[in-house]
Design a protein around this nucleic acid. Structure first.
Length: 467
RNA sequence: GCUUCCGUAGCUCAGUUGGUUAGAGCACAUGACUGUUAAUCAUGGGGUCCUAGGUUCAAGUCCUAGUGGGAGCGCCA
């Protein structure tokens, strides 16, 4: 019995038609079993595809006790003839000759059933939810998007750059940070002033998990030209929303000699490439999600790849909001940071299209953004998507050493911590740009999921790190 | 962190102005059916109505606190 196992996805290819009539072996988990006293139908899934293979077992050929143990969630090895299906709903099926039960899934304790689970319930059993159709689809898409990101950048001559995850810069400005320490929390060493003595800590100073790889990414761009980072990012914000995670993955390209327009062109092309890649390479999974959760998903994806994003200055956006006559909870005024309601109005009601907003007031944006000649605005760009909001945040970077230094002093930054960063402007400074794309936010858009906790296998958010 | 809604069977949910023994679908058990498609049909078992306290003749239902979850907002990707 040295039959070679085939993956279930291979049974649905054109090539598989040549296998009809031959003996095959499949292994997987039972999704459903149904039938009558003569025949049992087992839908088997091995994770290679959203599609199940139908295993047909004539009851007389199998031990009654074995068939009883074949329940939703049980794992099997099945040998049988691949045949054209006698029933409707599938082209081929396996007429089983031998079934080996790897592991039972006790129906009284196995929480997954063949019907109707809420996302909230599945979040409580996050260790088992990858076995559902929905999470299988989402996680396969997640893989494909990660792969496509590397492929896109590699094909365009970018280099994958590894910014550190542990950093000593205690105020990168993007949010609260998780501290990294090996000091004994029950017995912290103190210095003469009574403060914690971090010189005794692992790195000899206080350290944190990164909130962005950008500053180090700029060192890459200003040396090997075009780089991107793609790694985990950590923010200790007490954020309780369907769009935030404490641990998430971010893609941060950074390009020497790119101005803000080059930056926007790249961002738009990049997102469209990824969406197109999903439509072409994750067809079955996207169609499943479209069918089960949101039947406008595919239309929405097609819309994005076939329309130019609206490009708009912050000041024009304010004018549109003011002229709209729409009642907002927070009154619109030049200089304010746009609220969600304002962004959503622009994207979902006014333009009905992704929008790239640029040239924000400098006060509401980060210190490193290139200052415009008007003295009031900076060359920031935010890409805003329907439902999701900000999917990308980026800018052209301030390349002038003097302007950057002045700005950093203005807002009271500790310059000592940033000497290495300032050196990019002291020595051979160049115009450059970059942005950050939230990987999970992209996945929200591509999968149609509505909560970011459902597009990552093990979500991290306040009070939740169980699995 | 703020605001707001929700917590009833293993899962998804219904439960009227407070009123007898808390219901349905799925799941599970038994039976029926020669090929099903989240199979169907019949019968059956299954409940700390989130927890604690309170109001009331009477609480799943009303009040208070706690706890868990969702959504909106803020922070941002």
């Amino acid at each position: 019995m040295d039959l070679r196992r085939v993956e279930i996805k291979d049974l649905f290819t054109e090539k598989a038609k040549t296998m009809v009539g031959s003996q095959v072996r499949v292994k997987g988990w039972v999704r459903t079993k149904r039938g009558n006293k003569n025949v049992a139908f087992i839908a088997l899934n091995d994770g290679s595809t959203i599609n199940n293979i139908q295993v047909v077992a004539d009851v007389v050929n199998f031990d009654e006790e074995l068939l009883k143990k074949i329940t939703t969630g049980a794992s099997l090895c099945v040998d049988g003839n691949l045949v054209e299906s006698m029933g409707k709903g599938q082209n081929v099926e396996i007429q089983a000759t031998r079934i080996e039960l790897y592991g039972e899934a006790d129906v009284n304790t196995f929480p997954l059933q063949k019907k109707g689970h809420s996302m909230e319930f599945l979040r409580e059993i996050a260790h088992l939810r990858p076995r559902t159709n929905t999470f299988g689809a989402v996680l396969r898409i997640r893989h494909n998007m990660a792969f496509a990101i590397h492929k896109y950048f590699n094909d365009k001559g970018f280099f994958y750059w590894h910014s550190p995850l542990i950093t000593a810069s205690d105020c990168e400005g993007a949010g609260e940070m998780f501290q990294v320490t090996t000091l004994d929390q029950e017995n912290l060493p103190r210095n003469e002033q009574g403060k914690i003595d971090y010189s005794q800590d692992f790195f000899g100073e206080s350290t944190f998990l990164t909130v962005s790889g950008q500053l180090e990414g700029e060192l890459g761009a200003t040396s090997i030209g075009k780089i991107y980072t793609f790694g985990p990012t950590f923010r200790a914000e007490n954020s309780n929303t369907p769009r935030h995670l404490a641990e998430f993955w971010m893609i941060e390209p950074e390009m020497a000699f790119y101005d803000i327009k080059d930056n926007m062109d790249l961002a738009e092309d990049f997102i469209k490439y990824l969406v197109r890649y999903a439509l072409e390479n994750c067809k079955d999974d996207v169609e499943f999600l479209n069918k089960m959760y949101d039947n406008t998903l595919i239309d929405r994806l097609n819309f994005v790849i076939s329309h130019d994003f609206i490009r708009l200055g912050y000041t024009e956006a304010i004018d549109i909001l003011l002229a709209s006559g729409h009642k907002f909870d927070v009154q619109v005024k030049w200089g304010m940071d746009l609220q969600s309601e304002h962004e959503r109005f622009l994207v979902e009601q006014h333009f009905k299209c992704p929008v790239i907003l640029t040239d924000y007031p400098k006060e509401i944006k980060s210190f490193y953004m290139k200052q415009n000649d008007d003295g009031k605005t900076v060359r920031a760009m935010d890409v805003l998507f329907p439902q999701i909001g900000e999917i990308i945040g980026g800018s052209e970077r301030e390349e002038s050493y003097d302007k950057l230094l002045t700005r950093m002093k203005e807002i009271g930054m500790n310059l000592e911590h940033y000497q290495w960063y300032l050196d990019t402007r002291r020595f051979g400074t160049v115009p450059h740009s970059g942005f950050g794309l939230g990987f999970e936010r992209l996945l929200l858009f591509v999968t149609g999921m509505t909560n970011i906790r459902d597009v990552i296998p093990f979500p991290r958010y306040p009070k939740n790190a169980t699995f």
